[in-house]
Structures are given as structure tokens and as C-alpha cells.
Deep mutational scan, measured.
Amino acid sequence: LAALHAEGPLAGLPVTRSDARVLIFNEWEERKKSEPWLRLDMSDKAIFRRYPHLR
């Protein structure tokens, strides 16, 4: 499970980098069924690119 911001401008976004990794992994797991070539990237760089508020 990932903790998400409940309200405000960040509502629905992950609270920590660990939470972001959970979301990225879950999405990758779903997408790899139809796109088996996808690589999993959970590096800090990938997290910041996707969720800049975690910098």
C-alpha cells in the first residue's frame, strides 16, 4: 500500500519516495501484461521525473 496526500494541491500523489516506488511498481506490473518489453525503473531520477514534488 502507498500513502497518498489526502487533500490540497498534492491530493492523490505519493507522500514519500517509497510510496512512489509502490505506485510505479503496481503500474508496471499491470502494463507488462500488454507491453512485456517494458523495463521497471524505480530510480530516484525516474521518481523525480514523475513526481517532482518529492525532490
Rank of each mutant, 00 (worst) to 15 (best):
Y51D: 00
K33F: 12
R50A: 09
F48Q: 08
R21F: 05
S18L: 14
L13T: 03
A6N: 12
H53K: 00
P36I: 06
L54Q: 00
L38F: 14
L4W: 02
H53Y: 07
I47W: 01
V15L: 10
R49E: 15
T16V: 01
Y51E: 00
S34T: 15
L4P: 04
A46H: 11
S34E: 14
R17F: 13
P14H: 01
K32T: 10
P9A: 10
F25G: 02
A3R: 15
R17N: 08
L54G: 00
A46D: 05
R49P: 02
M42K: 02
T16S: 12
K32E: 03
F25K: 10
L10Y: 13
R17P: 11
R31K: 11
P52K: 03
P36W: 08
L40V: 05
A3M: 14
L38M: 07
R55W: 11
F25H: 08
F48C: 10
K33P: 07
F48W: 08
L13F: 07
E29R: 15
E30D: 10
D41Q: 04
P14Q: 00
L10E: 04
H5I: 09
I47S: 00
H5G: 04
F25S: 04
E7G: 11
F25I: 15
K33N: 10
R31A: 09
I24P: 00
I24Y: 03
A11F: 12
A20C: 02
E27D: 12
K33D: 09
R21V: 07
R31T: 04
A11Y: 13
K32L: 09
A3V: 14
L13S: 03
L10A: 05
P36V: 04
S34D: 14
L54F: 04
D41S: 04
V22M: 13
E29T: 15
S34W: 09
G12M: 06
R55G: 10
A11K: 14
D44C: 10
E7D: 14
A6G: 12
A6F: 10
R21C: 13
A20F: 08
S43G: 06
F25A: 07
P9E: 12
K45M: 11
S34L: 14
Y51C: 01
E35Q: 08
E7P: 09
S34C: 14
L23G: 01
R55T: 10
W28A: 01
R21G: 04
E29I: 15
R55L: 14
F48R: 07
R21T: 04
P52S: 03
L1D: 11
R17W: 11
L23Y: 04
I47T: 02
E30N: 10
E29G: 07
D44I: 11
R31F: 06
L40R: 01
A2S: 07
A11V: 11
A20Y: 00
N26M: 14
L1M: 13
K32Y: 09
D41I: 06
H53P: 00
L54V: 01
L4G: 04
R55E: 11
I47N: 00
P52G: 03
G12P: 03
P14S: 00
V15I: 14
W28V: 02
R17H: 09
L38R: 08
L54K: 00
I24D: 00
P14C: 01
A46N: 10
E35P: 05
H53R: 09
R50D: 05
A11T: 13
L1C: 14
T16P: 00
K33A: 10
S43Q: 02
P14T: 01
R21K: 10
R49D: 15
R39C: 15
F48S: 11
W28K: 00
P14G: 01
R31E: 04
L10D: 04
G8C: 06
N26E: 11
Y51M: 00
R50H: 07
V22P: 00
T16W: 03
S43N: 03
P9V: 09
S34K: 11
M42F: 09
L38Y: 12
P52E: 04
D19P: 01
P9G: 06
G8E: 06
K45T: 12
P14D: 01
G8D: 04
M42N: 06
L40P: 06
G8M: 04
H5L: 05
I24C: 06
L13A: 03
L40I: 06
L23T: 04
Y51I: 00
E30V: 12
W28G: 01
R50W: 04
I24F: 06
L4D: 04
R39Q: 15
G12A: 04
H5W: 13
E7V: 11
R49K: 14
P36Y: 06
T16K: 07
H5M: 05
W37G: 14
D44Y: 09
A2K: 04
F48D: 15
L13N: 03
P9I: 09
P9Q: 07
L4Q: 06
E30R: 13
Y51V: 00
R50K: 15
L38Q: 07
Y51F: 15
L4S: 06
D44P: 08
A11R: 13
R39N: 12
R21W: 06
P36T: 06
R31D: 04
A11W: 08
D41F: 05
I24V: 07
E30M: 11
E7Q: 11
P14W: 00
A20P: 00
V15S: 03
M42V: 13
S34P: 02
I24L: 11
D19R: 02
P52N: 02
R17M: 15
L10G: 03
R49V: 14
V22R: 13
I47E: 00
K45A: 14
S18C: 14
E7H: 11
S43E: 03
A6H: 12
K32C: 11
N26W: 13
F25M: 10
I47A: 01
K45F: 10
K32N: 08
V15T: 05
K45W: 11
S18Y: 14
F48G: 10
V15E: 05
L10Q: 05
E30F: 11
W37V: 06
A46S: 09
W28Q: 02
L54P: 00
E7R: 08
R31P: 05
M42A: 06
K33H: 10
S43C: 07
L54C: 02
A3I: 14
E7C: 13
R50N: 08
E29Q: 15
S43D: 05
E29P: 02
D19F: 03
P9S: 11
W28R: 01
P9H: 08
P9D: 09
Y51L: 07
Y51Q: 00
E29M: 15
A3N: 15
E30K: 12
L10T: 05
L13K: 07
A3H: 15
L40W: 02
P36D: 06
K33Q: 12
L10P: 04
K45P: 09
S43H: 03
L10F: 13
V22L: 14
S43W: 02
D44V: 08
R21A: 09
A11L: 10
L40K: 02
W28M: 02
S43R: 11
F25V: 07
L13V: 03
R39T: 14
M42Y: 08
D44A: 08
